[in-house]
Each structure stands twice: as structure tokens, then as C-alpha cells.
């Protein structure tokens, strides 16, 4: 079992993984290039723990398990290092090449990407056997699912150690093949694309489609509400990457509707306008935590 976890990237995902790791008794080293980002990350983790824990007495004990670093080589002591950097394939490939060259052979290297192929991310590393994908599904703090992605050269020991770690966080590992969108992204993409096709063909309006999907299908969010919350730009980015990675399989073709909206600056909740108008725009964090509190009106 791992003793020391490393996290590269102190953004939202990196913070959330750190939070659940310390709550499950792991020591965490977070790396980021920017010291002020690291300070802010630690503050945010602490304030999140205050919000989520019934008993706030032990919070210092949890936060003491988190250390921050601005030198990547300091993470060489870790048993498992998570990559939680921006979704840019080149950055990820270079990072894994560096981590592979500067860590002990037994260290597990995990990418949290929901979209890039693990085999591709690992392609510049010499020891690709220890590189794996662990896709934590948002909201990471409460969602029970982690997709465990085996690259073409990931070995069984890496899979077993990573699986044990996922289970120790009280999460359910879902073993998926290294393929475009893995399983959750792939099915969700088809769900969204079909809704966009319906809109494009004028079968129904976006708010009608949302209403029908929620009332008949019992989905918590309609596809257009979902895209607004996720970000129209993120939805388009994800859609374009799945399309490319699937060798341009027509069923994943990105919708022109998303492209037009991005060009117009309609990015969803975060920009105050997406498919819906958001009269009182909450901060991104608040919206993620309280999706039901969105003040929504139709265009």
C-alpha cells in the first residue's frame, strides 16, 4: 500500500484528490510551479474540509498530512504520483517522460485524464509498465467511480496497486480499455451528440429536450443543462478530442452548434450565458456544489 502520494498540479482536480487522500490517511505532496497557487490550494482544501466534515476538531491533523513543493524532483520519494495538469497531450507526455526518468522504478505514475489515451501519454517514457490512467469522476469528493485505464504496456502489478489504492479511498474501480472517452466519456458523448442533433434538426427546442429527458428519462440534468454546467467550451473540446481519437468516427462528430456558441462567447454558467441565461451567476465552485440552486431562465 502507498504511504506517500504525489500530485502534480494544484488546480481543482489536484486539490480534490489531495483532500480525499488525506481523509483516507495518506500523506500527500503537491507540486506546482507557483508557490501562491500552492498556498491557495492548501487554504481551499482546509476550508473544504471545514464544510464537509461533521467534526472539525481533527482538521489540522488532516492538513498537516499535506506538504507543498515547487521542485518536481521532490516528488521522487512518493509511491504513487498523480498527474493533474491541464489537458494538453504534449505537456502530459513530457511530464511522464520526466517523472519516469526521475523517480524510483517502483513508483506508480497515474494520469487523471478523462480524455487522452494512456498509451499515448506514456509513449515518451521508458518504463511504460508503471503508467496507468485513474480517471476520477467529478465531483471527486463524493463520486464513487474511478475509471482504471490500462495502457497497452501497463503491467498487472501496476493495475493491482492502483486498484487497491482506489478501493482504499472507498471508491469503485471500473476497469476500462484504453479507448476514446473510456466508457463514461464515450456514452455521455453519444447522449449529448444525439440531443444536439435533435436540436439541430429542430425536432424540439433545447429546453423541451431537457424537460423530456428529465421527466421521461428521470435524468437529474437535461443534456443542455449538463453542457452549460460543464462549460460549452469544455464540451466542444472533449467532443473534438473523442472525434480525433476515434479516427474521425462519424458518430462522435462535434456539433456545429457548440462551435458557434463558443465563437459567440456563450460558454455556459461560467460566462452567464449558454443554452440558458444565468441571471445571477454564482461562482464556478458554488455551482458545482449546488447544481440545483442555479438561477435559470430560458433564452
Amino acid at each position: 500500500m502507498f504511504k506517500q502520494i504525489g500530485i502534480v498540479g494544484a488546480g481543482t482536480l489536484g486539490r480534490k484528490i489531495a483532500q480525499i487522500a488525506v481523509l483516507n490517511n495518506y500523506k500527500v505532496l503537491i507540486y506546482d510551479v507557483n508557490e501562491s497557487v500552492l498556498r491557495r490550494a492548501k487554504e481551499l482544501i482546509k476550508s473544504n474540509l471545514f464544510k464537509h466534515l461533521p467534526d472539525t476538531k481533527g482538521i489540522d491533523e488532516y492538513t498537516e498530512r499535506i506538504s507543498t513543493r515547487t521542485y518536481l524532483s521532490d516528488l521522487s520519494v512518493c509511491d504513487c504520483i498523480f498527474e493533474a495538469v491541464t489537458e494538453d497531450l504534449k505537456i502530459k507526455k513530457d511530464l511522464f517522460k520526466h517523472l519516469d526518468a526521475n523517480t524510483k522504478n517502483t513508483t506508480i505514475l497515474a494520469s487523471t485524464t478523462p480524455i487522452f489515451l494512456i498509451t499515448s501519454i506514456a509513449s515518451l517514457a521508458r518504463n511504460q509498465e508503471r503508467i496507468i490512467g485513474l480517471n476520477f469522476i467529478d465531483p471527486v469528493e463524493t463520486n464513487h467511480i474511478v475509471e482504471v485505464v490500462k495502457g497497452l504496456r501497463t503491467n498487472l502489478d501496476t493495475i493491482n496497486s492502483a486498484t487497491e489504492f482506489v478501493k482504499s479511498l472507498n471508491k469503485i474501480p471500473i476497469f476500462v480499455k484504453d479507448s476514446p472517452g473510456f466508457i463514461i466519456g464515450r456514452i455521455s458523448q453519444v447522449f449529448i451528440n444525439e440531443a444536439l442533433k435533435l436540436l439541430n434538426e429542430n425536432v424540439a427546442s433545447f429546453d423541451q429536450i431537457d424537460k423530456i429527458i428529465k421527466k421521461i428519462g428521470c435524468f437529474p440534468d437535461g443534456p443542455f443543462e449538463y453542457m452549460d454546467k460543464k462549460g460549452i467550451d469544455s464540451s466542444l473540446f472533449f467532443s473534438q478530442l473523442i472525434f480525433e481519437q476515434s479516427s474521425y468516427d462519424y458518430k462522435f462528430r462535434p456539433s456545429l452548434i457548440l462551435k458557434r456558441m463558443c465563437e459567440a462567447g456563450y460558454f455556459g454558467v461560467k460566462s452567464g450565458k449558454g443554452f440558458y441565461d444565468y441571471i445571477e451567476q454564482d461562482s464556478e465552485e458554488q455551482n458545482k456544489n449546488k447544481p440545483q440552486s442555479l438561477n435559470v431562465s430560458t433564452k
Binding site: N143, H144, E147, I172, I174, F175, I184, I187
Partner: peptide, 16 residues
């Protein structure tokens, strides 16, 4: 891509 039971679990608990 995954096992049938895992597919259903992932979609139910992963994306509601």
C-alpha cells in the same frame, strides 16, 4: 471496452 456489469455501474454511479 469494459465488462457489462461495470458499464452499468459506471453510468449509474459515475454520471447519475
Amino acid at each position: 471496452i469494459t465488462k457489462p456489469e461495470d458499464l452499468d455501474t459506471a453510468l449509474k454511479y459515475g454520471v447519475n
